[in-house]
Amino acid sequence: MASTPLVRTGGFVVHPATHARFDDVRTMVGPKNPASNVCWCLSHRIPAKDNRELAGPDRAAYVEGLTRRRTKPGVLAYDGDEVVGWAAVAPRADLPFARSTKIPHVDDQPVWSAWCIRVRPGHRGRGISHVLLEGAVAYAVQHGAPVVEGYPVDNRGEKVDLTMAYVGTRKLFEDAGFALAARTEATSAGFPRVVMRRPT
Rank of each mutant, 00 (worst) to 15 (best):
V141Y: 12
V137P: 04
G30H: 09
L42E: 08
T101E: 15
F173P: 06
A61R: 11
N155R: 00
A17L: 14
A93T: 14
K72W: 10
D24A: 05
I128C: 07
D58Y: 02
Q142S: 15
V106S: 08
Q142M: 08
H143K: 07
F22C: 12
D24M: 02
V89N: 05
R124S: 00
H130L: 01
T101H: 12
D175V: 03
I117H: 00
G168M: 02
T71K: 04
C41F: 06
A87E: 00
T71G: 05
L42D: 08
L95C: 11
I46D: 03
A186G: 02
Y78D: 07
D161H: 13
A35M: 04
I128A: 05
L54H: 14
V106F: 09
V14S: 08
M164T: 13
R68C: 06
Y78V: 00
E174G: 07
A17V: 12
P110C: 03
K102E: 12
E185V: 02
T101I: 15
R197C: 10
G30T: 13
L6Y: 01
S100C: 03
E64P: 00
L95E: 12
V147K: 11
T200H: 00
L42N: 07
D107S: 07
A77P: 08
V194Q: 01
L66V: 06
K159F: 00
V13S: 03
V147E: 13
D58S: 14
P199V: 14
W40L: 11
L162C: 15
D58Q: 14
F173S: 09
D81Y: 01
P152A: 02
E64I: 01
W40T: 07
T187K: 00
V153T: 04
R170L: 13
A60G: 07
P31H: 05
V167G: 15
P192F: 06
A140Q: 10
R124V: 03
L180I: 15
V25Q: 11
P16Q: 08
H143P: 01
G10S: 15
G85S: 10
A176G: 14
R126W: 02
V148I: 14
E134I: 05
N51W: 13
G80E: 05
P47K: 06
A179L: 08
R59H: 09
A186H: 10
R120N: 11
R156F: 02
N37I: 01
A35T: 00
P31T: 06
R183N: 13
P104T: 08
A165D: 01
A17W: 09
Y78R: 05
D23R: 12
L132S: 15
G85P: 08
L172R: 03
V38A: 09
T71A: 04
C116R: 04
G127M: 07
A61Q: 13
S188H: 02
F191K: 01
N51R: 10
T67N: 05
G135V: 11
P110G: 02
A165K: 06
E53P: 12
A114S: 15
T184A: 09
V195T: 06
D79M: 11
D154L: 09
R118D: 11
T200E: 00
P5A: 04
